[in-house]
Design a protein around this nucleic acid. Structure first.
Lengths: 215, 215
DNA sequence: ACTGCGTTTGTACGTTCGTACCATTTTATC
DNA sequence: GATAAAATGGTACGAACGTACAAACGCAGT
C-alpha cells in the first residue's frame, strides 16, 4: 500500500507538488502514456520510490495531476473576475481579453486544458474539477460582459466560451495562421454580442429576409 | 520486426480493420493507455500475435487507428456535402443539421473525435488527417450556408465550426442538460448568421451604441 | 540527548508489456 | 495437385511497469 503520507512537513508537500508538476509536463509532451512512476520521479529529479509514497496507484497520480492543473486554472480565472477594468473599456478590448485567456497562451497550453476536459468525461473523479473550471470561465465572461454593458449575458457567455474553446481546438490542426485565428475569434465574439444587443426579433427578421431574398 | 503484411487477401485486410476498430473502442473507453497488443487482439477476438503481424509497433497501431477513424469522419462529411436539400430550407433546419453532425451523435463519439484532434497536435503523422477533417467540416458548413443564401461564408463557417466544436467540448463537463445545449447552439449559430447578413457596419454601430448607452 | 513519527530511498518482486520467432495452415499461381 | 507466397497463431524473452518493503534518515516534542 502506498499513500500513507501525512504531509505534516512543508518540505514533503513541496515534493509532492513537484511530482504533480512533473507528471503534467510528461502528459503535455506525450499523453497519459508518458506518465509512469519512474518517468515522473526522474523528471522531478527525485528517487524512483518517491511517487509511491505520495500516491497509492499510478491512476491516482494521473488523476491528481490533471485535477490540480485544472484547479489552478479555475483559481486563475476566479482571480481575474475580481480585476477592475478602466471605465471606458470597449467590446474590442474585452473580446481580446477573454480571447487571450484561453487561446493566446500558446497552443500547447490550451491543448493541455482541452485534454483534461476530455479526460474528465471518462474519469468521474475529475468531473467536478472540469465543471468548476467551466463555470469559472463562464462567470468571468459574464462579468466582463457586464462591464461592457450587457447585463443578461448568461447564454451569450456560454456561446462565447464555446467559441473560444472551439477555436483553441481548431488551432490544433495547424490549418490557420495565428493572427488570422485571433482576428476571426474577435470578430465572431463581436458578432455574437451585437446580435444579442439587437435582440431576437431583429435576428428573426434578418433571417426571414435572407430566406425571402434567396427565393 | 513486425509489419511484413502485404494484404493481398481481402480476408487479411478485414482482420486488420477489425483490429483498428477494436483499438478505437479501447481508446474511447480508457484512452491511449488502454491500447495494448493483447487488449486489442482480445477485443477483436483474434490471437495475441495478430497485432504484430499487421503493425510494426504499438505506436503505429495507435496512430493508424486514430487516423483511420478521423479519415472515416472526413469521408462522411465529404459525402454529406453532396446531399441535396429541399428548395426552401431555412436557417433553423440548416443549423440543426450542422449541429447534429458533431454534437448530436452522443457525447462519447464527439469526445473521441475531439481527442483525436488534440492528439494530432502531438503526433505529426496525424496532422494531415486532422487538417483534412477540419477542412471537410468547414467546406460542408460553407456549402450549407450557400444553400441558405449566404455566399461569402468562409469566415462565418469557421466561426460556426469553432462554435460547434466548443459546444461539444463544453458538454463533456456534464454541466448542462442535453436539450438546452442544442438550443443554445442553434441560437448562437442563428446569431452569427444574422450578424453576418447585417454586415460589419451594423455590428460596429450596434456595439458603438452599446458603449454609449453604458456611459 | 532521547524517542517517536513522518519521511526518504535503495532494492526487489511479480506482472504486463512490446516484440520476435517459427511452426503451421491457408491461399494464389501454375 | 504441386509449389511458393502469404497469413496465422502458439509461445517465449527481455524490458519496463506497478507496487511493496524495510532500512536509513530527519525533524518534532520532551
Amino acid at each position: 500500500m502506498g499513500s500513507k503520507a501525512q504531509l505534516t512537513q512543508s518540505r514533503s508537500r513541496a515534493r509532492r507538488d513537484e511530482l504533480l508538476a512533473a507528471a503534467i509536463e510528461l502528459f503535455a509532451e506525450g499523453g497519459s502514456r508518458a506518465i509512469t512512476h519512474r518517468a515522473v520521479a526522474a523528471r522531478a529529479d527525485l528517487p524512483p520510490a518517491s511517487t509511491t509514497y505520495y500516491f497509492a496507484t499510478i491512476d491516482d497520480l494521473i488523476r491528481e495531476a490533471l485535477g490540480a492543473h485544472i484547479d489552478q486554472w479555475t483559481a486563475d480565472l476566479t482571480d481575474l473576475t475580481r480585476v477592475e477594468f478602466e471605465a471606458d473599456v470597449g467590446i474590442n478590448d474585452a473580446a481580446a481579453f477573454v480571447t487571450a485567456i484561453f487561446a493566446a497562451r500558446g497552443p500547447e497550453v490550451a491543448a493541455l486544458e482541452l485534454s483534461i476536459f476530455l479526460a474528465s468525461a471518462r474519469v468521474p473523479e475529475l468531473r467536478d474539477n472540469a465543471a468548476d473550471a467551466m463555470r469559472a470561465f463562464e462567470s468571468l465572461t459574464i462579468a466582463i460582459l457586464e462591464r461592457v454593458g450587457v447585463s443578461d449575458g448568461a447564454a451569450l457567455a456560454a456561446a462565447i466560451v464555446a467559441l473560444i474553446a472551439g477555436t483553441a481546438l481548431r488551432r490544433q490542426s495547424g490549418l490557420y495562421s495565428e493572427p488570422s485565428e485571433a482576428l476571426l475569434l474577435t470578430s465572431a465574439i463581436r458578432d455574437l454580442v451585437a446580435a444579442h444587443v439587437l435582440g431576437p426579433e431583429t435576428v428573426d427578421r434578418t433571417l426571414a429576409d435572407l430566406r425571402r431574398a434567396k427565393a
